[in-house]
């Protein structure tokens, strides 16, 4: 299984901290997530920063990234205020 973690804005908006989903791609992980939480909007995830096992993925084609059992995926946002 793959652990998908929502932080900051996404966690606040959807009241979901984490879900375990089947391995595949990031996109497949989102499909499973949205099936369980029909109110979730894909655009919110497209606007988020994505880490897989602690490494930030570039925006290009990141949803096609393959995920394996044991991987940890974090969707979050950065802040830049001082």
């Amino acid at each position: 299984m793959v652990k998908v973690i929502l932080l900051n804005l996404l966690r606040s908006k959807y009241s979901v901290e984490s879900e375990n989903v089947k391995a595949g791609t990031v996109d497949f992980a989102l499909v499973q997530l949205f099936a369980r939480h029909p109110g979730m909007q894909r655009q919110d995830f497209e606007a988020a920063v994505l880490f897989v096992n602690g490494v930030r993925l570039d925006r290009v084609n990141r949803f096609q990234t393959e995920l394996h059992d044991g991987d940890e995926v974090v969707f979050t946002h950065f802040v830049g205020g001082g």
């Binding site: 973690i5 932080l7 900051n8 966690r11 606040s12 901290e17 880490f51 096992n53 602690g54 490494v55 930030r56 974090v74 979050t76």
Partner: peptide, 16 residues
């Protein structure tokens, strides 16, 4: 470390 004071969640998201 990402700090979330709303949920009191303090989590390292980047890998060293």
């Amino acid at each position: 470390m990402m700090v979330d004071l709303l949920h009191h969640d303090y989590r390292v998201v980047t890998r060293r």
